[in-house]
Each structure stands twice: as C-alpha cells, then as structure tokens.
Design a binder for these strands. Structure first.
Lengths: 116, 116
DNA sequence: ATTGTATGTCGTATATTTACGTCATAATTC
DNA sequence: GAATTATGACGTAAATATACGACATACAAT
C-alpha cells in the first residue's frame, strides 16, 4: 500500500518529477551530454565511455528511451541512439517555468532568516 | 558494492543529478510550488495541503533542507519554511545550460529517424 | 504542574533503483 | 553453416526511497 501516492498530485507535478527522476543519476546526465557533444549518434560506444558495465548502461538507456528523451534505431549490427531535441526543448520550458516561479520572490531574509 | 559509482562522474553531473533527485518526487515539487505561492512561509500547514501523512511530508522537507533548497526557522511552537531563492536561481542556471546544450542540435531526423 | 499542540526522530515494511553476470537474439564475417 | 560481435532481456543481490505509526521533545496555555 505504500509508494503509490503519485496519483494524488497534479499532472504537471507528476510530469516534472518524472523527467527530474530521469536526470537524477549522473550516468544519465552523462549520456545526454555525450549524445549532445558527438555529432554522430553513437551506440555501444556510450558504454565504453562510462565507468559502468555495458549492461548497466543499457538499462539507463532504456530508462531515457521510456520517456522518449532519446531514441534508438537499429543500423545493422549496432544501435544508434540520439536525442529527441524537440521533446528536450519542451521539457526545458517546463523546468524554466518552474524555476522562474520558485525563484521569483525573496522569501528568505538576507542572512538566513525567514521573513515570517 | 553496488550503487556507489557516483564518484566516477563529473562534479557538474553529480550536482545536477543531486538537484534532479530532489525534484524527482511530485510531493517535493508541490512543496516548492506551495512555498512559492504563499507569501508567508508556512510550516505544518504544508502537511495539511498534501495528500500525505505529516511524517512523510516532514521527511520530504528534510530532504529539501539537506540540499539547502529550503530553510526552516523555529518560531515559537511552529517552524517556518521558506525557499532559498538565491540557490534556486543558481540551480536554474545549471539546468538552463544543460538543456541548452542538450536541445541545441538536430540529432534526430524529422519523423523518427536517426541521422547516422 | 498538567495538558495540549507542533515538530522532528526512529523503527520498519514495502517498493524501487542500481549494478552486474549470464543468457538469448540477430546480423555480420569467414 | 559456424564463429564472432553488438544488443537487449532476464534474474538477482544490495542499496535507497517511500510511507507511516509510535515515541520524544519543546513550547504554550490552562
């Protein structure tokens, strides 16, 4: 009965949390940065660049793919992953709006104090 | 021996992942939004607004406080939480830079295809 | 002093994540 | 066709996260 209170929150909150969870591991952040830096979409080379086993990297790739943040295409024997830049731009907007709302006011006092 | 490969990644990647993890739960997203919307920093009222037990909410608050994203100050019997807007602005920059880098190119083809 | 209220800490059960080794599959190569 | 290679799927052990009830503390009010 535990761990399923997710449904009680806003769709927007759930969406943001879902994407945040995808970025909540340095390996997945690294994967996205790698795909962004390489001009060609690499495949298992990703695993070689990370300090993790191939199996584990594959698992992280599946997680990113499940959110459609990256896409994979079979090219003969290898698989070619690339960023879904359209979705990333959309997600960027969401985070931007969230942070703008959150960091707008001056809720806390200057040194450490609350303004209550 | 599992689950501690974090050290093998960039400081930036770890930092981003750490903050992302803080936002990886809808309750914590909701808490930040709540604190942003209320002019005064509320305390245990947060728990009343969320569909979770007071204990669980307190736990989420501690997690956000551990990252210094929010701060709490004791005011007599109640505790007053507020956003660390300065840090939030800083974090916003980090995410902004990350997404800009990630969503820059057109790695994927138009329909679904990789440009490999 | 005793009672009541607001919070946090602790213990704990369950769910999920992380990490990897081993196997199965599919395509290239010989 | 057999051997090789690149990947993903499956199983699993250990670490974390989630959620909550029960206790502990600290202040306020009677």
């Amino acid at each position: 009965m535990t761990y399923a209170k997710t449904a009680a929150f806003t769709a927007g909150q759930q969406q943001l949390a879902r994407v945040a969870k995808a970025l909540a591991h340095p390996a997945r952040v690294a994967i996205i940065q790698l795909l962004a830096s390489k001009k060609t979409c690499i495949s298992g080379d990703i695993a070689a660049e990370l300090p993790l086993s191939r199996t584990t990297v594959s698992q992280h790739l599946q997680e990113l793919k499940a959110l459609d943040l990256i896409r994979g295409e079979i090219d003969g024997l290898t698989v070619c992953y690339c960023l879904n830049t359209a979705l990333l731009r959309q997600v960027q907007q969401q985070f931007s709006a969230f942070f703008a709302e959150a960091s707008a006011g001056t809720a806390c006092g200057p040194d450490d104090a609350c303004a209550c």
